[in-house]
Design a protein around this nucleic acid. Structure first.
Lengths: 232, 232
DNA sequence: TCAAATTCTGACCATATGGTCAACTTTTTT
DNA sequence: AAAAAAGTTGACCATATGGTCAGAATTTGA
């Protein structure tokens, strides 16, 4: 947005993005009302942002889902955007953590299999997070532009180096690392983002545990065999 | 939306969804104003819906992009939703056409390679269409539920049969057909939908012809080798 | 117990938005 | 040429929405 004239922050709210659920008066006992309500608001916001997108989500609906009056939501989060940023912050931690500790000394077959499985199960367990992320990227990443150009870019550079080293050792084919990661992200997140399409095509019912397991098996076998990954 | 009390339609507008650009008075000469304006509105709407999503798109912005007053947009399309449906109708034709004429008599290596290439180049040439479709699915496919449960479901059933026959003939591994199609759709559409992420990770510049070509090569090799596709 | 701090919230506000309408202009048809 | 049809559009309307505020209620700490 244009020139951002800062307005008075909601209690516990900072511009640094540190909208952690707990802050305010020190001590374990205090701040519990705040912590509980912020958690409820964020949880409700996740549902609404995932289902309606940023523009389609209303603070009234978020409040209703949180079981609070709208003015109370604004008491904790100064703007709709600050609620959204808090939601997005929670999501990013989920995104880089898998595959984070992978090194060239790991077995590629095991590392890639585990990564794919973890990503598919994240789609199963956290479909809302995936959809919110997808919505954010599709609309041009207005909030996440910095993150993409720094944290994510560095993360991909690091993991690309690991993939290259595996190829150098003859443990897998020299496939373009970044494009391989795109393929893994896209195919695994598909089960969250395009879930309504997958269920229509498969059997008109909610995806089952077996569906997700088949997804893991299919993606894993295509990627491992497709990349000529040697099993240890 | 709830009980849909039909309102008077805009000229040339029908409930059947047939909002083709040309209609009205017969003859080549008449209706040219209508055809031109509807095309401009649809083109402008594609840009706005792709960038902002359904809820974030405004009829005022669509009108501005089309170079027309807002009331004129409503002259041709009774509601924002009818503009959206016209846009979506255009997109669906793009979606099933590739791979449409594939049969078990085709060479799987060639058929799959061509399909993947066509899909990646659709992402390159029609990213807006892909993003609008993705937005629609992610928000639960309110407009496309019927299409998913009929046309798309049947299309996948047909192509799954072809993939099974190839496997029966030993031309490829017996991979779960629908899940393989999900993998191909997800990984190829990724270059349109998550384009801002891909460019941030790759080189902070618009994706180049080489990027798309690398995408084709990577996805094709992983899929063909990963599925044990025999080349003719 | 009481003061201070925090939380709560109904009412309100300014702006945005989808859509309508009447009157005018232009185009097409008779 | 004139009537009919189509196209145009500024002004307007009703509703939706993000956000504010003052006062009350509750909680916390001294």
């Amino acid at each position: 947005m244009t020139e951002d004239i800062r307005r008075e922050e909601a209690p516990g709210e900072t511009h640094s993005g540190d909208n952690a659920v707990t802050s305010g008066r020190s001590s374990g006992k205090t701040g519990q009302i705040r912590a509980r309500n912020k958690a409820r608001i964020i949880s409700a916001a996740e549902e609404v942002f995932a289902a309606k997108g940023y523009a389609g989500a209303t603070t009234a609906e978020i409040a209703t889902r949180a079981g609070l009056p709208k003015a109370n939501v604004h008491y904790y989060f100064s703007t709709k955007e600050s609620v959204y940023r808090a939601v997005i912050d929670n999501i990013l931690d989920l995104w880089l953590e898998p595959f984070q500790r992978i090194t060239e000394d790991d077995d590629p077959a095991e590392a890639l299999s585990t990564y794919i499985r973890t990503k598919v199960m994240l789609s199963r367990d956290k479909p809302l997070a995936s959809r919110i992320y997808a919505n954010e990227i599709i609309r041009g990443a207005p909030i996440l532009a910095d993150y993409l150009g720094t944290d994510l870019r560095e993360w991909v550079a690091e993991k690309s180096e690991v993939l290259r080293k595996w190829a150098d050792k003859g443990l897998m084919d020299p496939v373009e690392p970044a494009h391989l990661l795109f393929l893994i992200w896209a195919s695994t997140q598909h089960y969250a983002d395009f879930q309504v399409q997958a269920k229509a095509v498969l059997h008109h019912r909610d995806l089952t545990e077996e569906d997700f397991e088949t997804a893991v098996q299919t993606i894993t076998r295509v990627v491992l065999k497709g990349c000529g990954v040697k099993t240890g």
